[in-house]
Each structure stands twice: as C-alpha cells, then as structure tokens.
Design a binder for these strands. Structure first.
Lengths: 267, 267
DNA sequence: CATGTCACTTGCGAAATATGCAACTACTAT
DNA sequence: ATAGTAGTTGCATATTTCGCAAGTGACATG
C-alpha cells in the first residue's frame, strides 16, 4: 500500500480501527473490525490490544465486544473546553433550552457538512442521546442554512455538489435556486428555519454566530417537534430570541458588529 | 525499549502524543509534545502529521499549535450514546438542572477516581465548560462518596491508599474513619453530601445509581455555590429529589429493587 | 460428557517500516 | 539584513511489524 510521505502506517491503521466504531455499530468483535478496516485478524487483535492499554477502546466485560473507551471522553472534554465557540455557546444554549423547553444546538461547518458541538434538551424535546460530533447536511437544516448565509451562489454550488441535492422529505430544497431564495429571505431576518426538511414532524430555527473577523463561525438553533416549537405561531418571537442568543455568543467571540466588517456580496 | 508482547510501539507512541494534550495545556507545539512524551522532534512531527490526517488532532490556523481534533468529539459522541448509564441519566440530569437551577452531574468510578460522564448547569450554577472525562477524588466529593456507599472499610482502605487522604480544604475527610462515619450516616438516608470538602464555597448532594445486578454503577448529583444550593435549609428536600432521580436512572438500567439483591455487609 | 466449531491470541522468521541524523525551509526578532 | 528558532524531509540502517500457522478457550451440539 502506497502511503503519504511521512505518515506512520501503524498509526493510520489504528485510526482506521477507531473509525470502525460508528453510531450504528458501536460495539464490535475483533473480526468485525478486521473486516471493516481490511486488515488481518491477528494485526487487528494486536492493534486493539494496544488501543485498549491506552484506554481508547475497552472490552465489554460481559459481551467481550470492543467499544470506544474512556480516554476518548477525556480527550473530547479537553477539545471542547479548548474551543472558544463551545465555551461561549454552552451557557447560552443551556439557558435557551430550559427557558423555552426546546432543544438547543450549536454546530460549526466542517467541509460540506454541519458538525454538532453541543445539544441540550428542554422539557418539550427530551432526547436521551448526544449529537456531539455528528454530521448533518448543510442544505436541509436550519443551522446549516445559517452557516451558508454569507456564501455566494457559486460557493454553494461548489460546496453542495451536483443537483439535485439529497432530499430527505418532500420539503427539502433539492435545487440550489430554491435554497438561494430561502437564504435571501433569511438574510434579511437574520435567522433561518427548517420545517420538516430533514425529518418529518421536526422543525428548527437558527441564527449564525460570528467571530472577531466578522465571519460566520458557528450556528445556534432551537429545535423540537413541530407542535412543540409551533413556528407558524411563534416564528417572530423565537426568531428574535435565537438572533439575540447568537449575538451574545458572537460578542463573546469578539465580534465587533456589522459596521466593522465589509458586508458580504450576496447576488 | 522493552514493550509488552503484542503491543504496537507506534500506536503506543501515538497514544502518548494524544495524552500530551491536557486540560491545562490543550494546545502544544511539536517540540512541546516531543519533550512531553520523550521522543525525537522528527518522530513527533511525523506522528502528529499522521494524527492530523485522521483528524484526531488539528492545527490552529493562526497559532500553528496542535490541538485535539474533531474526530475526538465524534468518537466521544459514539461512546456516550453507547453507554446505557449516559442514555438513562442524561434526560434526568437535564431536568434536575433546569427545575432547580443547580448543576447536575453524572459520574462513574474508574479505578480509585470519580470519572465524569456528564454535567449540565441551571441558572444559578452557570459554567462555561464541560467536566466530561475529568477525574476527581472519591473521598472528597458527594458523588465519590455515593460510589463508595457499598464498600467495606477494608475495600476503602485498598482503594483510597494511605492516610492521610489528600486534603483540599479544612473540611475534607482525611482519615478513613471519618469517611466511614460519614458514609454510615449517609447509607441510612440514601444520599451523600459534600460541603466545601473539595473546594471552598461549593457544595453538592448525590445519590448512587444501581444497575440490574444491584451494584452501584454510577452516581448523580446536584451541585452549586454554597448559597445557591443552601444545604443547611434544603437538605431534606434536595435529598429526596436526588434519591428519586437516582432511582429513576436505576430503574432505567434494569434495577429490580433492594428486595432482589442481598443487602451488602457494612461493618 | 465428549467433540466439533468458532473467535481470538501468540510464537516466529521474513521483510517492510519507522527512526534519527543532518540538511533544508520557513518565520521571527533584533 | 541577519541570526536564531521551530519544524519538515531525504536517506540508510536496523528495529518493528506482519502474516502464517499453531495454540487456547469458550460455547454449542451430538
């Protein structure tokens, strides 16, 4: 196998082993991992043993299956606490969630996807799991659209790939044009919405967070079941709240306000 | 260097590189990492490059320092959502936090330390950081004491090491006897407290969570500034709430109730 | 209870791979 | 402009890893 100059093959393989654990298959046998990463069973066994010693994976005492280990949580805690966006947004999101009883989420853009940093739930939107580290499409989520607010049509075409854009429900925008129209409308209001575009029965309202350079660095959103969030009645109210929350985070990141940044060209 | 049979040296070194990033020093230069793990600079540079390709570390675009990368968050999300304790406890903790305005925390025992899975804050206890993956001493925290509730004096002696136990404030129990007395009193009530034992000005009330075998599998707690939690006035009220919350989680884990488990010997 | 099967771990030699040195490049500060 | 600092990369050596095949242990089946 031809690998990049300077890369360490064993470490590449070990990373591949770690990536074999996914949300859908979080506990695996040695041979499952071996098949997944395309390595021999013996090599995989040794790699897993080494990763286990580092507590990056652990073995379920009863099922004997390997799963991701506690060191992974420790590293994630360090990574989050080191991220200024997380530090600023966390209290804001928690407050939104408990004041409104909805879900509150924070995400950044990673490549052509939305990457969740944080989600918390209020009483009307209970979830028993974390979205941290998961990806979602940009064009079909409220936060994704907020992250796209400053982009030009050309940038979006490059970022989102060929049309039709992946559809998830009949409400998903599957053309760049439809998405552009939505974004243009949203730009004037300062917030984006998503009503059953990714999942039926769910809606979301989001706003962009800007950093000290004035660029959109993250998005924050309120989400919940269609009936809980009731956007048809409360869009104005929730829009004002999410924009204010986003602004609080932006200011915490050193954003100086629109007067200090050339307003982006949006044809 | 003599390594364990079957261990992969490169992977061991890469794990050591990842461990070089700590809460206190989350962003490091190549030479910092090299010094920390005791490797040559060139080797460290190559290891970091490989880890960067896997997105386990990333480089701050401005400072050029390495820090832990997004893949770490993704793996942590998978690990958490795979953990039944986390899944059961998360909504319970969130509800406690927003109903009482205090901090709510969930931890398990890992070796002779407390290991945080989760913490959320209410309006009276705002924190801008996560404790996920961090360790705290068992003998000086409410949750730690809850995790020790079923232990015998002998087990505690083995687990906690030589006296005096590490003291953090003048209120920390530094002898096994004092700790044992505290635990005996707590066992009857079903909850443990911690009043300025780890940090001045802070207090906490915690209860043990049991799994389907009847063993203590985790602890859940309410915490906050001394004045916010006001244990002197509200201990009975908060004790009832935290015990109930712990019970909810226990039942979610399949706990069948004390009648189905031999009551532990507590001399 | 014996036996067969399956999943995993380990010993060993061959061979691919990582390593450290030193040269080279990119910045920063003076 | 220049010296110093930090990081990256080419290359030859030798250390380390790999895959095979045998060994171990658990579990189901006859």
């Amino acid at each position: 196998m031809v690998s990049e100059t300077g890369g360490n093959q064993s470490v590449e393989r070990a990373s591949a082993v770690l990536r074999a654990f996914t949300p859908g298959r979080p506990a695996l046998r040695v041979s499952d991992v071996a098949a997944e990463v395309g390595l021999g069973v013996s090599t995989t066994s040794r790699l897993l043993a080494t990763l286990e010693a580092a507590e990056l994976v652990q073995r379920d005492p009863v099922s004997q299956l390997y799963e991701l280990g506690p060191a992974v949580l420790t590293m994630a805690g360090i990574a989050l606490n080191n991220d200024p966006i997380y530090r600023q947004a966390r209290p804001v999101a928690q407050r939104l969630a408990w004041e409104l009883g909805l879900g509150a989420n924070v995400a950044v853009r990673r490549g052509s996807s939305l990457f969740y940093l944080l989600n918390v739930e209020g009483q009307l939107a209970q979830k028993s799991f974390s979205l941290m580290g998961q990806l979602n499409p940009l064009h079909a989520t409220g936060m994704g659209k907020s992250l796209l607010l400053d982009t030009t049509a050309k940038q979006r075409a490059e970022l989102l790939g060929a049309e039709p854009l992946p559809g998830f429900t009949s409400h998903t925008h599957t053309t760049l044009d439809a998405l552009g129209t939505d974004l243009t409308a949203a730009a004037g209001r300062g917030y984006t919405t998503e009503i059953e575009e990714l999942a039926l029965g769910r809606a979301c309202i989001a706003a962009p967070v800007r950093d000290h350079t004035g660029e959109i660095a993250a998005a924050i959103s309120l989400s919940g079941a269609l009936s809980a969030i009731a956007l048809d009645e409360r869009e104005a109210e929730l829009g004002a709240l999410i924009v204010e929350a986003a602004d609080t985070v932006s200011i915490g990141l050193g954003y100086l306000g629109p007067a200090h940044t050339p307003s982006p060209v949006r044809p």
